[in-house]
Simulated scan of single mutants.
Amino acid sequence: MKTIINKLLKKQWIIWIGLLLLILFFILNKDLISLLLDGDVEGIRSFLNKNLGFALFFLFIVMLIQNSFTVFPLVLVITINITLFGFMKGFLWSWFTSVVASVIVYCSVRYIFQDIIMKKFNPKLIEKVDANGFTYVFQARIFPFVPTSIINILAGLSTIRLFPYLLATSIGNFLYFFVLALIPAGILSAEWDEYVIWIVILAAIALYYFIKIVRNKRKAVSLEKDNID
């Protein structure tokens, strides 16, 4: 009984410390946060250009917040990264921080907040994640209407292991972020943005199922050989 109480107290401390740090971050960077909420990319660029080290840290925290609560539009965060660091470095930093942030949220939900959050989600939805695992996370990553934070939380509440979650997130985010990165880079026109995104998404899904079918066939062949032997 004492062990359970101690664990709960530790969780309470972690929650309060996390909230205090978040509030402190917003207070210390209220001007930058205001620019971010207004979508003022040029203002943010001129503000962060003075200190690239702080820019990296700030944009990582922004990505962590985005993965926790989906406060800021993802395309805006990617646009800021590309504006500051160039297309390739901005895209890679956006992708890398998104993967790290998603793992932090996943682990936080699973090991700290699971008991608190579990009641707020439909058990059938969590069961779908349990049943499909890698496939569910991968498809959700490349589907533009599923909030990133919801994917992370549902994965943390489910039984999906860290490695399949990390792999699905890495591949899915890489594909989706690359398409989003083409928009601020000016490679996609406003008329074709949506169509190209859907083409890439459908192609990614088709590729995934093709690989899955090939793997299943190989497994079936190997099982047949084992049975014959």
Rank of each mutant, 00 (worst) to 15 (best):
I151F: 11
Y176L: 08
T169F: 11
F177I: 08
R161F: 08
N152E: 03
Y176N: 06
K119L: 10
T135Q: 04
V146C: 06
S149V: 10
K120G: 02
I183E: 05
I153E: 00
T169S: 14
N132C: 05
V137L: 12
L182P: 01
L162S: 00
T169G: 08
I187Y: 06
I160E: 01
D115F: 06
V109L: 05
I142N: 03
I153A: 11
Q139E: 06
I116N: 04
G156D: 04
F113H: 08
I187R: 14
F177D: 01
V146Q: 03
Y111F: 15
I151P: 04
F178P: 01
Q139C: 12
L125I: 14
L175A: 08
I117M: 10
F177A: 09
A185H: 09
E127R: 15
F145H: 06
T148M: 11
R141K: 14
L154K: 15
L175P: 05
I142C: 05
Y106A: 03
G186S: 09
F177V: 04
F145I: 15
V137E: 02
Y106L: 09
I183K: 15
F143K: 13
T148G: 05
D115C: 09
Y176A: 14
R110K: 15
T148W: 05
G156Y: 10
Y136V: 07
F145L: 14
I150P: 00
N132Q: 08
I142R: 10
F143E: 02
I104Y: 04
D130I: 12
F174I: 06
V109P: 01
I116E: 00
I153P: 04
F138C: 06
I183T: 14
V137G: 05
D115W: 07
F138M: 07
D115A: 13
P144Y: 06
G186H: 06
F174E: 03
G156C: 02
I104L: 12
M118T: 15
L154C: 07
S158W: 04
L166C: 02
K120V: 09
L180T: 09
Y111A: 13
I126G: 02
R161Y: 00
F163R: 15
Y136P: 04
P147H: 07
V137W: 03
F121P: 01
L125T: 15
F178V: 05
E127N: 07
F163A: 08
I187L: 11
F163T: 13
F134N: 06
L166Y: 11
A181G: 11
L180D: 00
G172A: 06
Q114R: 15
Y111E: 06
R110G: 02
Q139N: 08
G186R: 14
Y176F: 11
Y176M: 13
